[in-house]
Design a protein around this nucleic acid. Structure first.
Lengths: 205, 205, 205, 205
DNA sequence: CATGAATGAGCATTCATTCAT
DNA sequence: AATGAATGAATGCTCATTCAT
């Protein structure tokens, strides 16, 4: 038991080291530069180690993505669950998304890079948001309609709600790209501005 | 501002053919699929022809980008020049940007793909918007401040204007990604919604 | 037309050169040694050239196999077509098979190597002779039965004919392996001995 | 002739387990699939264990071969020793070889695979039969000549005896390849047919 | 005895680019 | 003006082997 735990600890440490190095390269130099050779060089190990700890490069990349989703969910969920109104939910959603970016800067940049590069075998984008089907947009749409019923938001058609939801997501996704280009962004202030912008854009007139 | 007038008719035609094929591949199958071999195959020519007409692959890619910027500018300028208020200018900017996407769908998708892939020698993103220096954002910021003076917009600090400007650009850039995923988007309606959203977000309370 | 023919000639020459080098390596050092790097080294070219002329390593290997089948068929067919009895046909089949090995020594050794190494994705042998379904065995079985009717061969059950047919093929296949180990085999004499052996094994008592 | 008596019971068991798993993989999926990783996985142990018990992969492979030779010899010797004539000896040799295959099916298939893949450092085949030097062929040649003296076989030159001996071996070796492709072969009947074939091929006219 | 971890060489393949014709 | 041919570096991946624990 003790030996297993220790070995598992080493394995876990290596996996984290490799993932951290991959994130470092992807966030600073882009997805295309993140070859196994570059990642291994950054980590000071041989290429084979990566293959030993991850079944494939895709596996490594997927781990980086799902790791972020997991910590994002863990971070966001309590805040969102505490909200009692749609207005509060959306404001919190925007604000906490941005603040999460602040604490996971490189990881978020890396995952954004990954998502915008991931293609299926035919070259079709794997993760681009389809305004009619994207899960995140659907949740935002539902909240916008709820906000209308609660008297905080203006009337929305399904389409107008979807466009606003997509615009909120674009603002957050776009911020991730800005992060890769701007090192000294004040994200607390940025979050407040975004909350203001979308609160005004959605509110009852 | 053509760089060289010496291009013969045939040469010009070949360049356009190659660029069109590259745009077709990049927009439909993604940047990674756009190898010279694939582009040549699509065009029904040999790889050498591309090298003959473009000094490098980067040169071809840059031409595709600057071509779009040129036609975008040609399309947008008269509409924007006709505006007498900042409010009108920004509404027009948003609306006509979206309509331009409608008429240059594949080219816009391709350039968006390129922009999010292009890196300099060190791996730094070549085109990501820096909120403090990006030319487009600067123009929007100027217009937002003018709108305040004209009594149509709320008060903005430099930072709050920059965040709103960046959000407008993110909405438009993000729409380009959606275009690659959603075939049947009603762009006229989408433009109107975006105009409404940002008019509300900027207006004087 | 002339230019096409000339270029096609160069291409043909390179393909033959590559195939010849691959045959040389496979026949002398075995299938496992025949990496693209080794073949390219033997040919004094870069690995890329092979990929340029063959769509894949499998393609190159398949060409080597089908080339031999084609020349084998071209060589054998007239002799076999000239035979009027089953006895003559089988004697000729054995004799000419061995003589063909004499003139295509390395190629035959290489293809035997290839055939005995080729596996499908699950590792199942692709070309091992199934006594009940192998096409070559089926032809020999038919001839054995015909020879019985013509009064030259003893009576065969289907099974006993199949075992004899398989034994004839094993003798020829096995000779190919011997060729890889024995440089100075007298194949004309060997052919005569095999003819004698199987004539005695099949004849009417 | 065991080389080392020091092997503990556990060590012996482990070696057998590893060899059995290697035989299973080689016989069912081919030599190329038999990486140490696959063998270790099949055995449910780590790769290191194999290296611990065998000095190298080649050592493991050689053990599988010599193990089969040893049990083959143990099985065959009493039957052959009981024969008083060359005719009886050769018939028994063929029949018992085939029956041994029946009882050691996978092991025989695996060893046949190994023999046709094993090469020395220079790539020369390690086990292909040289008609002039192969020990098994030499024994059969001696028996054929004895059979002539005993009045059962026709006259043989050294060469004609060697070809017949090689053909007998090819028939048996070839049967092993068939075993890998045909699951339901009646080996008792097959043995009888082979005895008939070679008795007829060798007999006095 | 056994393991997990790591290595480094080798694999087939793809790529942008160059060049003689 | 255009091409086919060739290059050499880089890619993700697998492998037998080694070694500290």
């Amino acid at each position: 038991m003790k030996s297993q735990k220790k070995l598992s600890f080493i394995e876990e440490a290596r996996r984290n080291q490799i993932m951290t190095c991959a994130i470092e390269i992807i966030s600073s130099r882009g997805y295309a530069q993140a070859s196994l050779a570059q990642i291994a060089k950054e980590a000071g190990i041989s290429k084979g180690v990566i293959s030993y700890h991850f079944s494939s490069k895709d596996d490594l990349i997927e781990q980086i993505v799902s790791d972020l989703y997991e910590s994002g969910s863990t971070f966001m969920t309590p805040y969102l669950a505490a909200q009692t109104t749609a207005l509060g939910w959306i404001n919190t959603y925007i604000e906490k998304n941005v603040l999460f970016m602040k604490s996971h800067r490189k990881h978020v940049i890396a995952v954004t890079e990954i998502i915008f590069h991931a293609r299926d075998e035919e070259g079709k984008p794997r993760h681009f948001r389809n305004i009619d089907t994207d899960a995140t947009i659907n949740v935002l749409v539902k909240m916008l309609h709820r906000g209308t019923m609660e008297g905080d938001f203006r009337e929305f058609t399904d389409f107008s709600a979807r466009v606003l939801a997509a615009t909120i997501r674009s603002a957050i996704d776009g911020l991730s790209f800005q992060l890769a280009a701007s090192l000294d962004l004040d994200l607390d202030a940025y979050a407040k501005e975004l909350v203001t912008i979308f609160q005004m854009a959605a509110r009852k007139v």
